[in-house]
């Protein structure tokens, strides 16, 4: 989305407007529609009402975490299980939030931080970090609003119109979110060997955790953290960024 056209060389806080945030959030929003649609369907297929699905989507705004948490609700799990599982899956957000703390304008107020941090998702984070300049609260707010609406709308559609899409289309859409991740990963990897290395290391370790017995018992939240820390630390050690790149 941002790499197709080289942006006009402008700097200063004025280029990252609320409207630009809304626009940059649109592809994320469309990507979310299919995922949250699936979520809405899953919820009503287990005889829960549509408003429960909406409530979960609008208060959680996360994919893996709310899928797992909802699954546990349906299974009748204990509160502590719901808390620990959801937390472990979402612990990666701490890493993203920490990265973002270095990326947002220093003058962003505590109140703004409290509100905007609610909207940190994998995709919002990825797009925010791609900006050349410090991210201000207007842009960040715009970047969150469109995906949030997409997430809520997709859930509503999925929960109310379950028979809307044939199964063949729904299974095909399962890959859409990963396609989006690859669209974020591959263009910078073409330009930077270090980023390619980060991706390769993280992917290889992740596959090890998925396929090696015993290791594959670990929950995906922890595994993602382990992979990300090892890959990013190795690259930071071997290929530290030069001053002008940071």
């Amino acid at each position: 989305m941002r790499r197709r056209k080289e942006p006009i060389k402008t700097s200063g806080p004025l280029c990252l407007t609320f409207t630009k945030g809304l626009r940059d959030g649109l592809p994320i929003c469309l990507g979310y529609l299919s995922v949250s649609f699936t979520f809405g369907m899953m919820v009503v297929q287990h005889d829960l009402p549509a408003w429960i699905a909406m409530l979960i989507s609008m208060t959680n705004l996360t994919s893996a975490g709310q899928f797992a948490g909802t699954d546990l609700i349906i299974q009748g799990a204990m509160y502590v299980e719901v808390a620990v599982t959801t937390f472990v899956i979402n612990i990666r957000y701490m890493l993203m939030s920490l990265s973002l703390s270095q990326k947002v304008e220093a003058k962003m107020s505590t109140f703004q931080r409290l509100i905007l941090s609610f909207g940190i998702t994998d995709e919002v984070f990825a797009v925010a970090m791609q900006q050349k300049e410090a991210v201000n609260s207007r842009y960040f707010a715009g970047l969150i609003v469109t995906p949030y609406c997409g997430w809520a709308l997709g859930t509503l559609l999925g929960a109310t119109a379950t028979s809307f899409l044939p199964l063949s289309v729904r299974t095909a859409l399962g890959i859409a979110i990963y396609g989006m991740f690859l669209a974020i990963l591959i263009p910078p990897a073409r330009k930077s060997k270090a980023i390619l290395l980060v991706i390769a290391i993280a992917a290889i370790i992740r596959c090890g955790f998925a396929w090696i017995p015993v290791l594959n018992q670990l929950s995906s939240g922890w595994v993602i953290i382990i992979c990300a820390v090892i890959a990013a630390a190795f690259a930071a050690w071997r290929f530290p960024l030069r001053e002008e790149e940071t």
Partner: peptide, 25 residues
């Protein structure tokens, strides 16, 4: 600083592989 700059790519890669292979029929 370098570590935090590389984190997004590492996180997304770890979320994509190998899940993408089992995301379809």
């Amino acid at each position: 600083k370098s570590f935090l700059a590389y984190v997004p790519y590492a996180v997304l890669a770890a979320m994509t592989f190998p899940e993408i292979l089992s995301s379809t029929g």
